[in-house]
Design a protein around this nucleic acid. Structure first.
Lengths: 314, 314
DNA sequence: TTGAAAGCGCTAACAA
DNA sequence: TTGTTAGCGCTTTCAA
């Protein structure tokens, strides 16, 4: 009898007694449903796709861990596929969608902010959850309050006595991260500090742009006493400049980053930064795709204070 | 007519003319075969599984990139699943194997060296490729010559004038990595330097154990003038100790690591280390599972010389 | 070398 | 609430 199917899929209209009997048999026989057959006959594939690009390895792995774990514990499977941002992307995505028929797709920056990528998913109608997407595009988006925590960071620096606080912009294509700059302005405003353009530099999220910005900022006639970079790699670039110039950190210049990357805690001195709940983001994304009525929960970032800012006044 | 199947699977016994006609039609219609149907009817699933544990994010991501890219370009798909080393691992693996029926499995440390994990795969008979597996267990193994490159590292240090060279052991459960110690001994032997136990410390691959070993080594009455740690995190721990003690690197002590992690190049000073072709490892692993007659190629590691050892004598 | 038929192991739709 | 039947889209087997 194929009531078994009903039990396995947790459908209603099954008497508890029957259900129990089936469950027992399943356990005794070590029965495992065949994914392929379920996919072919049913409407679901039990597959979530995670196409990714430009891996910041820590971010990717954390998202993957969170999402894959949730999938695993709910009878789903996570398929990850690298997608380059070249014209072939279209083919790759089409093939993925058509052969795999995933029940949902998780996207992270920069894919989730690339209109011509999102278009492909929109056309196929597959449910999409975008993590940290900064644009209004197809699919649901999980957003973090990066602005508030950036303001907190500035407040932290101000509380240490800093008045001239430099800032290094996030990569211009990471839309949502632009909020970090707004938070920086918020923080200055709260402290009644006039923002100064000469203390702000553009960055590209890599070490080199952090080094360049650091060189410029620390060469100013009146250099900042603290520099807040929009990510850790750039902050570590500034740290490198400080070391090279024999400046003490945080004595001569305090440095803060964003991401809580492994390098940030391993650096010398360890870097003050912001921790995002990345693994949870992956988990929540998967959950939003798998559970019908699951709403986006609030996810907040945390300030991680380490020695690169530490107490200046003591 | 179902000759189409023959064309798509590149089977023989099809006239070139017919083949061309079919291929044209396929392209025009944008036809994509349905994975589930192929799995159900055929003997292959076109799925490679990558269960992983204890992610060193860079390593995992690189393996994943290499493997997923190869899979993607050969009609396969990579499913990654986190596996904890607790008793539940058995259930997780069984479920994965039975529902997914992967055509092959890729394993990395520590899973590839855990007998009771490998057993599960052996029982199911699924083809396994173990990357950097140090034990003789089920499945084919991709091995790197970590011993030779470790010897080169010591030779490099000796060439800079170092005679007292400390070593921090790899994590005891990473079997293959023990070769790094043998390479260290080789290097000393080549230089005619007597190995000294007091210059060697056990490590656990993390920052803390590097700090601990660094403290001990640098507190010796006759401290080493160079320290070679079996991975970057531990080397960065030693670097932290040096900074704290106001020692100059490489002036007072040269420091070398192993892995070429992102932190190693971002550190101050940038860390001399060893680069493994990790992404290629992932690619090769996938290829060994997908292409019938593909043999393990030679994969060598490269010494990356940066400022943390630099020239001592100059 | 090609075509026709059976059926992989499930779920959907319907009948009982 | 349960059982029956058809069929998902391919590959396999076998006949032509």
């Amino acid at each position: 009898m194929k009531t078994v199917s009903r039990v396995l899929n947790n459908e209603p209209h099954v008497r508890p007694a029957v259900r129990q009997r089936v469950e027992l048999a399943v356990r005794e026989l070590g029965y495992r449903p065949n994914l392929a057959a379920r996919q072919l006959a049913g409407t679901r594939s039990f597959i979530i796709a995670y196409p990714f690009n430009n891996p910041s390895p820590n971010y990717i792995t954390d998202i993957l861990m969170g999402a894959a774990e949730f999938c695993r514990d709910h009878g789903y499977h996570l398929v990850s596929e690298p997608v380059d941002l070249n014209p072939d992307a279209k083919t790759v995505i089409q093939r993925m969608l058509r052969t795999l028929k995933p029940d949902g797709v998780i996207l992270t920056p920069p894919l989730c902010d690339t209109p011509r990528i999102i278009e492909q998913f929109e056309q196929s109608g597959v449910p999409v959850v975008r993590i940290a997407g900064g644009r209004e595009l197809y699919g649901r988006s999980i957003i973090l309050d990066e602005r508030a925590v950036s303001r907190q960071m500035v407040e932290h620096l101000v509380s240490l006595g800093h008045q001239r606080i430099g800032f290094i912009h996030p990569h211009p294509e990471h839309i949502l991260a632009q909020a970090r700059y707004l938070g920086y302005l918020d923080g200055l405003a709260v402290a009644g500090i006039e923002p100064r353009n000469e203390l702000v530099r553009q960055g590209l999220f890599d070490l080199a742009s952090g080094v360049a910005a650091g060189e410029e900022l620390l060469s100013l006639p009146m250099p900042p006493t603290a520099i807040f970079a929009a990510n850790d790699d750039m902050a570590l670039g500034v740290l490198q400049v400080a070391h090279r110039r024999g400046l003490s950190v945080p004595g001569d210049v305090a440095i803060a980053g964003f991401d809580d990357s492994p390098s940030s805690s391993i650096a010398w001195p360890p870097l003050t930064t912001v921790r995002q709940p990345v693994r949870k983001l992956g988990c929540v994304a998967a959950r939003m795709l798998i559970e019908e009525d699951f709403e986006t929960p609030d996810l907040s970032c945390a300030l991680i204070i380490r020695e690169s800012t530490a107490s200046k006044i003591d």
